[in-house]
Design a protein around this nucleic acid. Structure first.
Length: 813
RNA sequence: GCCGGGGUGGCGGAAUUGGUAGACGCGCCGGAUUCAAAAUCCGGUUCCUUUGCGGGAGUGAGAGUUCGAUUCUCUCCCUCGGCACCA
């Protein structure tokens, strides 16, 4: 009998797919298309188990869909720009490009060794000028259409290295290399008007049944639509300032105002107030990310300025507060400590008045009451509820011209400028006379020089390369300066899924083929991308649609968010030293085992706890399968057709098991996407077939059907071993191109079912009844059970609940 | 802090619509095979109690709804992910 040699088996199968170009696809209008995609990897070095898991998930779905007869696009590429390449460049004294290309080559060979069913002809890398030139082209179009603008924004500045730091490079408020205290610095940067699409991005979520509710909720909250009033407050010594509030009903409870440290009012007041100026400097050293803002100590300082309450005429102090965000609303808020948590905390700390203006009987001085209610202490507005008060105030301020209805979004415009080298150059030229000019389309792409040297500060080399940034103005042809910032790498990952449909097209960003394949039918990737990447990609898709490049509204029909791969309860990482190298496992057990284990260990959405023993188990299972099928083949039976009319009870049972498993596995892959239970069901079938010893003609026919069915169903998970078993079972063609098995409902008919008998909800017996037995006879059979009688005897039967084909519950007292 | 997940045997997990808690696998225990070991095969394996049949408890903690709750509701604890310059 043939022995199972994974390395030999896998080489054989991979060679077949390679020479026959099995997974190369082109549009075919005779077949239903299916586009299956995993989030592409950042080429950080070698593959890690998270990659293996991600790509095996899309692999199983892609191969399954192909066996359903669909025209399946399953591509792969590299998200090649990014910070780690620069870090490696500093550390290893190599150019980021060199490091990146070497990593891509390494990872490609690993992906090939895993036998993934990719169309390798469509491979792309985002650092390729043939890719990013179209990103630059799109940016120029958006620039011309006014969807791009430049404004000042905050960055982390390392004053020693004289460089901008990513949030990740700021550790406890200090630069990661220099250790210097990082400060906030404001510099002009480019923005995409994603907020123009906020409403559509929000509305479309209601029409995306293929996305997990959790992701849709996160995006909804991220967009954060809120309806409120924008109100103008007169500040006699400054002018008018606007605030945004969702709670105008609490306007009479305002006891102070607060503005962001970057607010013009704060800056002006600081010019004559050294203490305030010092406070603003302090604020500029605090981290500006949202988590830090929310958890830091709330601090403030009065500006000395007074605002006039628009309804009562009362004078209220204007404070600067470190928790007010310049980037949300107007950068100024009215503070109602009686009915807002944060205002309350601040008022207690600085001894500001707390007023009750919503009915209630708690101690408002001790605890704020944030629920809606009936207005009190609000003059003519007393007795109104939230909606009434909102409307009357809206009308009042609109008539006066000092307030207006305002829909606000928490979502901010997308800042795309990065002061980094290893990214796509922003195609802009600055001219002293003509201002910022887009690079003419004929001059695209602006190519990033790849032969560069990094110094120890980590600053971008192209900022010191006159041969890169010295140019002429495309309008007046006078000497001008090229933009040296590059794009946020989310720009590349926002449209790569579309470029896979036509990766070599050089006449435009996308060809007609895009609309054949798009939208992506199944997208798979880490849950950590639930908001940013997925929101940016959705935005980009709508932009591409509005440019007339594609005709769908959303990029990803169905989304599967996979959990992380853990070892010893922690995320695998080099610094923790708890990584597992998939390559070593492939060398030892083969790709099929690694793939099978990664699918079997946990359902895809959950985190996966690594287990060396579990891999051993997967390998053992494949060995057992191989052995059992080879043993069946070695017996050299003549396989005839099944005589369904004359089956023994055992034969009926094994046939039931085969077809029940087909239903289970198909549903688990297609609908539930719980691949672990699909594998468990196949293991059960393997166990059942192994135990089924029957040399009769029907027995052999059933075993043949069973093993063949199993080989087919396991093929998306373990395509190599099953391809060889398929050949050994004397089947023709490639298993990857075979039809998926279909359930024969006649095999699932059962005359008898087992039902559970409970007394007061506790299991007391199991009985077999006819499948079509009526309620009365089921009750009678259940009550006749000896162990049921023990618990019913001497008590009164209150009622009997019968769930057909499942259970009987006798309620006694 | 805010938003979104997760918590079930010794371990990974199963229970799909409120209906047998622990499928499948790992580990462990016992047996077969072997000169011996590895590998393989067979059997057992939630905990407590019982020779056995059986009984009791049990899904992070506490309450609630229900004939019946791992599943629904509320409060709390722990943990993971995201928070806009990591990708």
């Amino acid at each position: 009998m043939k022995l199972y040699d994974p390395q030999k088996v896998e080489q054989h199968a991979q060679q077949l797919w390679d020479t026959q170009q099995t997974f190369r696809v082109s549009p075919d209008n005779d077949k239903e298309k299916y586009y299956c995609l995993s989030m592409f990897p950042y080429p950080s070095g070698k593959l890690h188990m998270g990659h293996v898991r991600n790509y095996t998930l899309s692999e199983v779905i892609a191969r399954f869909q192909k066996m359903q007869g669909k025209n399946v696009l399953h591509p792969i590429g590299y998200d090649a720009f990014g910070l780690p390449a620069e870090n490696a460049a500093i550390q290893n004294k190599t150019a980021p490009a060199k490091w990146t290309y070497a990593n891509m080559a390494e990872m490609t060979s690993q992906l090939k060794r895993l036998g993934f069913a990719y169309d390798w002809t469509r491979q792309l890398a985002t650092c390729d000028p043939d890719y990013y030139r179209w990103e630059q082209w799109l940016f120029v179009q958006l620039f011309k259409q006014g969807l791009v603008y430049r404004k000042d924004a905050t960055v982390n500045w390392d004053p020693v290295d004289q460089t901008v730091l990513a949030n990740e490079q700021v550790i406890d408020g200090k630069g990661w290399r220099s250790g210097a205290e990082v400060v906030r610095k404001t510099i002009p940067q480019w923005f995409l008007k994603i907020t123009d699409y906020a409403e559509e991005l929000l509305q479309s979520l209601d029409n995306m049944p293929g996305w997990p509710d959790s992701v849709k909720t996160m995006q909804k909250n991220w967009i954060g639509k809120s309806k409120g009033l924008e109100l103008d407050f007169e500040v006699p010594e400054f002018g008018r300032i606007s605030i945004f509030t969702t709670r105008p009903d609490t306007l009479f409870g305002v006891s102070y105002m607060a503005v962001a440290p970057e607010h013009p009012l704060a800056l002006k007041a600081a010019t004559t107030n050294p203490d305030l100026a010092e406070f603003l400097t302090q604020c500029s050293k605090e981290q500006s990310n949202e988590a830090a803002m929310a958890t830091m100590e709330k601090k403030g300082m009065p500006t000395g300025l007074i605002a006039v309450h628009p309804l009562t005429g009362e004078e209220i102090p204007v404070w600067v507060a470190n928790f007010v965000l310049m980037s949300y609303g107007t950068g100024a808020v009215m503070a109602v400590p009686g009915h807002d948590e944060r205002d309350h905390e601040f008022a207690l700390k600085y001894n500001l008045p707390i007023k009750r203006v919503i009915e209630g009987d708690g101690d408002i001085q001790a605890t704020p009451e944030t629920d809606y209610g009936i207005l009190i202490n609000s003059g003519e507005y007393d007795g109104l509820n939230f909606d009434q008060a909102f409307q009357r105030m809206q009308h009042y301020f609109e008539d006066k011209g000092t307030g207006r209805l305002q829909i606000n979004y928490r979502l901010r415009d997308w800042g795309v400028s990065r002061q980094r080298y290893w990214g796509c150059p922003i195609p802009i030229i600055y001219c002293d006379k003509c201002g910022a000019q887009p690079v003419p389309e004929n001059d695209l792409p602006v190519i990033l020089p790849e032969d560069v040297v990094f110094d120890d500060t980590g600053g971008s080399p192209i900022k010191k390369m006159p041969e890169f940034y010295e140019t002429v103005c495309p309008k007046c042809h006078e000497p001008a300066t090229r933009e040296t910032d590059t794009f946020d790498t989310f720009m590349e990952s926002s449209w790569y899924y579309a470029r896979y449909t036509c990766p070599d097209y050089d006449q435009g960003m996308l060809s007609d083929e895009a609309d054949y394949w798009l939208p992506v039918d199944q997208y798979i990737g880490g849950v950590e991308h639930a908001i940013l990447h997925l929101l940016y990609a959705r935005f980009y898709h709508k932009v591409l649609r509005d440019q007339g490049l594609i005709n769908s509204d959303e990029p990803f029909k169905r989304l599967l968010t996979q959990g992380m791969v853990l070892k010893d309860g922690a995320k695998m990482s080099k610094s923790k030293g708890n990584t597992v190298d998939p390559q070593a496992l492939i060398d030892r057990y083969g790709a099929d085992t690694v793939r099978l284990f990664s699918m079997f260990a946990a359902p895809p959405e959950q985190s996966l706890e690594w287990s060396d023993e579990g891999v051993e188990g997967a390998s053992r299972y494949l060995n057992r399968l191989w052995h059992n099928v080879q043993e069946f083949i070695a017996q050299n039976h003549k396989v005839g057709s099944l005589d369904k009319q004359n089956m023994t009870s055992e034969q009926q049972q094994i046939r039931y098991k085969i077809h029940q498993t087909i239903g289970k596995v198909t549903g688990d892959i297609d609908e539930r996407q719980h691949f672990n239970t699909a594998i468990a069901a196949m293991m059960e079938l393997t166990n059942a077939l192994t135990k089924f010893k029957d040399d009769s003609s029907n027995g052999v026919a059933l075993l043949h059907e069973g093993w063949l069915t199993l080989v087919k169903m396991l093929s998306p998970f373990a395509p190599h071993i099953t391809q060889v078993l398929w050949e050994d079972l004397e089947q023709t063609g490639l298993l990857a191109e075979a039809d998926w098995p279909v359930v024969d409902n006649s095999a699932l008919v059962q005359d008898e079912v087992e039902i559970v008998v409970q007394v007061n909800g506790k299991l007391r017996a199991k009985v077999k009844v006819a499948a079509d037995a009526d309620k009365e006879s089921v009750e009678a059979i259940a009550l006749a059970e000896e162990n049921v009688q023990r618990f019913v005897d001497g008590k009164t039967i209150r009622k009997i609940i019968v769930v057909p084909k499942k259970l009987v519950n006798v309620v006694v007292s």
